[in-house]
Every structure is written in C-alpha cells, then in structure tokens.
Nucleic acid binder design. Structure first.
Length: 528
RNA sequence: GGCCCCAUCGUCUAGUCAGGCCUAGGACACCGGAUUUUCAGUCCGAUAACGGGGGUUCAAAUCCCCCUGGGGUCACCA
C-alpha cells in the first residue's frame, strides 16, 4: 500500500484558528493511524514579510497540543523547502509546461475589465465565465506586450468543450460532480511570477507526494479546478476528504474571527468570554492579550489541558461509536477512520469542551496540579520566586482544598484569599452586606468566636470543625447562623472551598485577624 | 443569483451504505431530587429529536422523488 502522507498548510496569520487546528488534528491523527507522515507546509505566497513572527504562534499551537509535524519548518525533510515562498521556481517550471501544452495562456485582460464582466454576469443572473480573447495571441505579440509593460496573468484552460463531468470521489462526501463548462479559467500565476493558491497547492501536494488531502468543506468548491490541474500536469490525484467546517456555537455558520463581537452575545460563549475577561487582566494582559476564543492560544493561556482540547476537537465531526466520549490521543489515533466523519457542519460547544476538561483534570495527580498552578500564581504576583519551596507545599494544600473547583489552571486565581495578606483581603460587597452587616447577631457572634478561637490553637480542618461545632452548641444556635458570616469574614467571599479547610489553610491567628478586621469594617459601614 | 454541500433531542452525536433488533441509544447543557455549612462536586431521576409531502415495501430514521430549510463558495486571498 502507498505510504500515507497528509499535510496542513497554514498561511502565517499570526494566530492559530481553532477550526484550523481541528483540521490539522484530523490530518495528523489519520497519518498516525496509518503509520504515515504528517507535513506542515507554510502557505506564504502572498506575504513574504513577517513570516517568522506570524508563524511562531501557529507552531506554538502545534507544540502545545502535542501535534508534532514530521516534515516542515524547523524539522525539514526530504521534500522541502516547506515554505511556498521558496518554491517559486517549481511553480514557474510547471506553469511553463502548461503554456507549452497550450493548457494555459497569457491573459492581458485588466482586473477592472474582469470585474466588470463578472458583475455584469451576476446582474443578469448568469454564470460568469472569463473571456478567452487572448488565448490565440501569438508568441511575438505576447512578448511585445510584456516588453511594453502590459499587465497580464496566466490562466489555466478549463476543458469546457466536453460533456464529461469532473468527478471527485471524496472520502467523506462520496461522489461529487462538477460541470467544467460552467467554470471560469482560473488564474494560476500573476505577472510578478508568484503563483495563486490553487496552483501552488496542487504542485506542492504532488511533489510532496501527499496521499490524502483532508481539509475543510469550504475547499470543496475549488477541488474541481485542482483535480483538473493534477490531470493536466499528469500528476496522480490524491484522495480528497472534505470534512465539515467548525461552526459557531449553536449555529451552522463557519466559526470566524470576524464575528467575534457577535459571539460575545452568544450565550454558549458567554462563560468562556467572562472567564477570559476575568483572568487575563490578572495575568497582566491588557486587552486580553489580543486573545479570543477563536484562537488556540486562548485555551492555552486560560489553562486548558491539551488532552481535553485534543479530545474535544477530535469529537467535533467525528465519533468512535455510540458511547465513547473520553478518549486519549492514543485511542483516537487507534480508532480514527475517515468513514466515521460526519458530513454536516458541527458547532463548537464551549460547554462540552469544559466538560471534557473537568474529566481530564480529574485524572491529574495533586502534586502535578500544584506545579501547574504556580506559573499562574507567580504571574499574578501571588507567589514570588524566592519562596518557591515554601510555596509548593502550601499551594498543594490549597489545591487539595479547592478540589474539583479547579477546572482550568487559571481557576486558581479565583482563590486569591489564600495568597493575599490579611489587610489586603477584599470583601465581596454584596456578600458582606448580606452575611455580616444585615444579620443582627452576626457581628456579636463573630466577635465571640474570634475571642474563643484565640486561645483554641486549632491546626487541622477537623479541629476547626470541632471547634466551631462546639461553639454553636454552646450558643444553642444552628451552624447556619454563623457559618456564612464566618466564611465572608475569613475569605471575603460568599462561596469557596470548604469552610474548615479554608480556616486550616490560614491558621488560627490569621482567621482571628481577618474576623477582627471584618468587625471593624462592619462597624464603620454601620455608622455611615 | 450560479455551482456545490448538508438535514436525528437546545448542542455534539449513534443508528442511514448492507430496511425489521429503534415504543430512536449515549454525552453536554437545562430542570428536579439526594448528599453538604455555602459554592462546586458526586449520585439518582426527568424533559427532549428522525424538517414536510409523496412513493417503493409485509415493514422506512434508514431506499427513491419533490419541496422546504440551513450552509459553503463564487478574487490577479488562502
């Protein structure tokens, strides 16, 4: 059997699109399933300038997700170069071949003229086809006009005068037919000698011996052109597999960076945006660091697990069977086949991603969790380099108390009460009013509790538990009458980790300090 | 508008190719209950879908046709 070779060909845009990542992932998984090769090829025919800086975030996304490319930038390979900007010679050579075979021609029609013709066709609700006025120009005339500086373009000649349909046997969609008599002759080369996408893509796929072109459905419509080009160049056509594009949550519309403002209002996206808005400023990223949920980097920065994102992405438009949801990348590679790809567009569901994340986070051992939280705490300024040793031990205890509330790494920043000094602790205004100021007995009870706690010297959560229970028993009140006020006093918040875990983390002395500070604040807010 | 693709719970999907095992299965979300000092979690439970119409057949979510709806794409972008 022929060696399986797949590729992903991003253009250096400065970020990695989550939908593109899913396409790349399918390519990688498919290749690995067949012990094949996955290639990264850079589509930089258009913008030769800041390729390096615009490429880096893309490579980083691949590294982060754990999708290594066997051939491509940095790694090289036998079929390089892997930057299209370095392959122009090859495109020109093949273009020349087509011209000689009279399968391509110089076209001096101006862009304005072409546009006018296209618009006219549209206006008359007619299919647009380019004119072939310049097809019969003899070489002397062509040379003369080129020398004169006339702008031209090279078009591939579509075989329109045939009844034969172009048939694509798509691995996902089955047989798809196109009628060549309705297709315009595509431009394959500009006069500056640079190729257009459809042309460069075909030549590279052929020379890199790509066996399967797995790409998003939006490319289905330029597949006939490419198929024709493969034939004309006498290259063997690869197997095409057009996978559904990734849609915006709850819609069938392609997920797009241009519609971000609209997504902010999307209820499915709401939680995700809110989390980012909360977390990024704490990490010192102004304007959210230019990050948004369409970008892979967004999930990396927020602290998603790569296994979770990998799992979630694999499940968009693909399933293993009627049950299995949680899958390791090994399981996915082992079971991935093209025939189980769904045909209709699949909405990206942030809730589902989060649920995958919880599952995967549940498998992470405690010490590893703590280790991963440290960079977040450090960046936010809650932990300092010098105190790493102390910090790890303490952070591990906090993380243990936080338990399942830690879903993404950055969630640790929601528990700042364990990292700020007692006089810096912020109180949630609403909770403070409701639990401390408003209930008449809250402050006296807190005062008394603080008094008794001073001499108690509790250490463990159990001891705090016992202490508080004894206290309420003695006062003949329910625990509910004190616990809420106590929580707000000690943590500043209405909700959080287990009350006694929180107290044990802080220790008797700090709990007392915080309660006393609470009482001061309460009395001053009373008198206002 | 031309060309092309798609159509099962709110969402992601299984089932469609090889019609019966489907009074349509799973997961997420939502809702309810239990547990708990709060939040979360966990455990139980409930609601929820074959777009419509015609065929074919003993039998159709599954095959055929039409309609409707949704979407992609129509560059000297990729």
């Amino acid at each position: 059997m022929k060696a399986i070779r797949t590729r992903f060909a991003p253009s250096p845009t400065g970020y990695m699109h989550i939908g593109g990542m899913r396409t790349a992932l399918f390519n990688w998984v498919f290749a690995k399933h067949h012990q094949g090769t996955f290639i990264l090829r850079i589509d930089d025919t258009d913008q030769a300038r800041n390729v390096e800086s615009a490429l880096e975030p893309i490579l980083q996304a691949f590294r982060w997700l754990g999708i290594p490319w066997d051939e491509g930038p940095e790694t090289g390979g036998d079929f390089g170069p892997y930057f299209q900007s370095e392959r122009t010679e090859s495109y020109q050579k093949h273009c020349q071949t087509l011209i000689e075979k009279r399968l391509a021609f110089y076209d001096f029609t101006t862009p304005d003229q072409s546009r006018a013709e296209r618009e006219a066709a549209e206006k008359e609700k007619r299919n647009y086809i380019n004119n072939r006025n310049d097809f019969d120009l003899d070489s002397a005339t062509i040379q003369e006009r080129i020398d004169r500086g006339d702008n031209y373009v090279i078009r591939f000649l579509v075989p329109r005068d045939t009844d034969e349909k172009i048939v694509i046997d798509d691995a996902v969609r089955g047989r798809v037919e196109f009628d060549p008599s309705t297709m315009p002759d595509p431009v394959i080369m500009r006069s500056n000698g640079l190729p257009l996408y459809n042309f460069a893509s075909v030549i590279d796929d052929a020379s890199m011996q790509i066996s399967h072109v797995i790409r998003a459905e939006e490319h289905l419509s330029n597949t006939p052109v490419q198929a024709l080009l493969f034939d004309a160049l006498e290259f063997e056509r690869p197997t095409f597999a057009h996978i559904p594009y990734v849609a915006a949550p709850g819609t069938k519309e392609k997920l797009s960076k241009r519609k971000l403002e609209q997504y902010r209002k999307n209820p499915k996206f709401k939680k995700l945006f809110e989390h980012g808005d909360f977390i990024f400023p704490l990490l010192g990223l102004e304007n959210n660091g230019g990050l948004d949920p369409v970008m892979v980097e967004y999930y990396e920065k927020i602290g998603y697990l790569t296994d979770a994102v990998f799992n979630a992405l694999a499940r968009i438009g693909w399933s293993l069977d009627d049950q299995t949801e949680i899958m390791s990348r090994e399981t996915i590679v082992e079971n991935f086949t093209l025939d189980r790809i769904v045909k209709s567009p699949a909405g990206f569901d942030p809730d589902k991603l989060l649920s995958f994340q919880s599952d995967w986070m549940g498998k992470v051992p405690l010490n590893e969790k703590a280790l991963n939280c440290i960079p977040y705490l450090a960046t936010a300024g809650y932990v300092h380099a010098g105190e790493k040793e102390f910090a790890h031990d303490y952070i591990e205890k906090v993380v243990a108390a936080v338990g399942d509330r830690l879903v993404v790494w950055s969630d640790i920043l929601r528990f700042d009460e364990f990292f700020v000094t007692d006089d810096q602790l912020k109180f949630e205004e609403k909770a403070f009013q409701k639990r401390v100021v408003k209930p008449e007995d809250a402050c006296p009870l807190l005062a008394e509790l603080a008094e008794e706690l001073t001499g108690a010297n509790c250490q463990t959560a159990e001891e705090f538990d016992q202490f508080v229970h004894q206290f309420v028993e003695k006062k003949e009140i329910g625990i509910g009458q004190i616990i809420h006020a106590l929580r707000v006093a000690v943590t500043g918040k209405a909700a959080g980790v287990g009350m006694f875990d929180a107290m044990a983390l802080l220790g008797t002395e700090r709990c007392v300090k915080r309660i006393r500070r609470t009482l001061e604040l309460a009395s001053s807010s009373d008198s206002q």
